[in-house]
Design a protein around this nucleic acid. Structure first.
Length: 305
DNA sequence: AAGACGAAAGTGGTTGA
DNA sequence: TCAACAACTTTCGTCTT
C-alpha cells in the first residue's frame, strides 16, 4: 500500500483496504475511494503456463486516450457488490454512486460523447489508429483546459483530428474532414488554429508529397507515375516553387505532369476533382513547373512513344 | 465535342499600419 | 480595425486535338 496515505481524509479512519487487483485504496468505514489508478507495487512475476497466467498477470488493457478515462477509472458499485450490503450502508453507497456520477458529468460525459464522434469520423476517413489516439489526446487536453466552451463539440473533434493528421503526416484536406464530420470547413480551420495555438502544438506546414499516394491511387495511376511525381516535387521544392502555395495544388500538378510523361494521361478536370481544387490552379502550377524545370522536351518525347 | 488555355472578376484569409 | 495583398476560385470565351 502507498506509504503516504494512512488515514482517510474524509472520516479519519485508519481502516483502509487495498484492492490490489483494481489498483484502488478504499476506506473501509466510509467507502471513500482514496486513491485509484495507482501503480501495482507487487513483485514482478513470470508466468509459465496458462494457470499461472491468470493468477499472476497484473496488467489490463493498455492505456488509451480513446477511452474517456483512458481505460482506467473506478465506478462505485459496478458488479452488484452493493446488494451484499443491507439497509443504511446500502443507501449510502447508492448515494455515493449518484455523486460519482454527478461529479464526473462535466468533463467525462463530454469526453464520452466526443470520443465516440471522433471514432466515427476517424473510421470514416480510414485513419490509422495512431492518428486516432493522437486526436483523442489532443481533444482530452482541450477539454481539460476548457477550450471547448463556446465551440461545438464536433468542431473541436474535427479540429483535433485535423491536427493529428498533420502531425502524423497523413494529411487529409479540410474538405474531407468537413465532409465526414458535417462541420463547416471554416469552422474546422478556426478551431484547429485555436486549439493548436492554445495547446502549443507545433505543426509543420504540410508537405505536398504526403498527398501523392492518395491522389495517385484514386486516379489509378501506376507506381512509376507516382514516383515520377515525387521526383518532380523534389525538384520543385528546390526551385522554391512550393512555398506559399497550397500543397494540394502542387501535388495535383506534379501528378498531372507525371501522368503526361508516363503516357497515363488524365484530364485536368479529373485530377482537379480528386485533389479538391480547380483546373485553373492546376494549370497555373503546371505552367510554373514546366517553365522552371524544363519539362518541355520530356513531355514531347513521351508523346511520340 | 471535349479538353486545354487564359483573362477577368470575385472570395476568404493574412498582414502590417 | 481597416486596407492592401496573395492565393485560389468561378465564369466564360477562345483555341486545339
Amino acid at each position: 500500500m502507498s506509504e503516504y496515505i494512512k488515514k482517510c481524509p474524509d472520516c479519519g479512519s485508519i481502516n483502509l483496504i487495498l484492492h490490489k487487483d483494481k489498483g484502488e485504496v478504499i476506506c473501509k468505514d466510509c467507502g471513500l475511494v482514496i486513491e485509484d489508478r495507482m501503480v501495482d507495487f507487487g513483485q514482478e512475476w513470470r508466468e509459465f503456463d496458462a494457470d499461472q497466467a491468470t493468477k499472476k498477470r497484473r496488467t489490463g488493457a493498455p492505456i488509451t486516450w480513446t477511452k474517456y478515462d483512458q481505460g482506467l477509472g473506478t465506478d462505485v458499485g459496478q458488479k452488484g457488490d452493493l446488494y451484499k450490503l443491507a439497509g443504511k450502508s446500502r443507501n449510502k453507497f447508492f448515494r455515493l454512486r449518484k455523486w460519482q456520477y454527478r461529479i464526473s458529468t462535466a468533463i467525462e460525459r463530454n469526453l464520452k460523447l466526443a470520443l465516440s464522434e471522433l471514432k466515427r469520423v476517424a473510421s470514416f476517413l480510414k485513419l490509422p489508429k495512431s492518428v486516432e489516439e493522437e486526436a483523442a489526446r489532443i481533444y482530452t487536453l482541450a477539454v481539460q483546459r476548457g477550450l471547448v466552451r463556446g465551440r461545438s463539440m464536433e468542431s473541436v473533434v474535427a479540429g483535433a483530428l485535423y491536427a493529428a493528421c498533420r502531425r502524423h503526416e497523413v494529411p487529409r484536406t479540410l474538405d474531407e474532414l468537413s465532409e465526414s464530420s458535417g462541420i463547416d470547413k471554416k469552422e474546422i480551420g478556426r478551431t484547429y488554429r485555436f486549439i493548436t495555438r492554445e495547446l502549443g502544438i507545433r505543426i509543420l506546414p504540410s508537405n505536398p508529397v504526403d498527398y501523392l499516394p492518395r491522389f495517385a491511387s484514386s486516379l489509378k495511376l501506376s507506381a512509376e507515375t507516382q514516383s515520377r511525381a515525387v521526383e518532380i516535387l523534389q525538384l520543385a521544392q528546390k526551385s522554391e516553387l512550393t512555398s506559399g502555395r497550397g500543397p494540394t495544388g502542387i501535388a495535383a500538378a506534379a501528378l498531372y505532369v507525371a501522368a503526361l510523361i508516363n503516357n497515363e494521361k488524365r484530364t485536368q478536370r479529373e485530377v482537379a476533382d480528386i485533389a479538391g481544387i480547380t483546373e485553373v490552379t492546376i494549370r497555373n502550377r503546371y505552367k510554373e513547373l514546366i517553365k522552371k524545370l524544363d519539362l518541355h522536351e520530356t513531355i514531347k518525347k513521351a508523346k511520340k512513344d
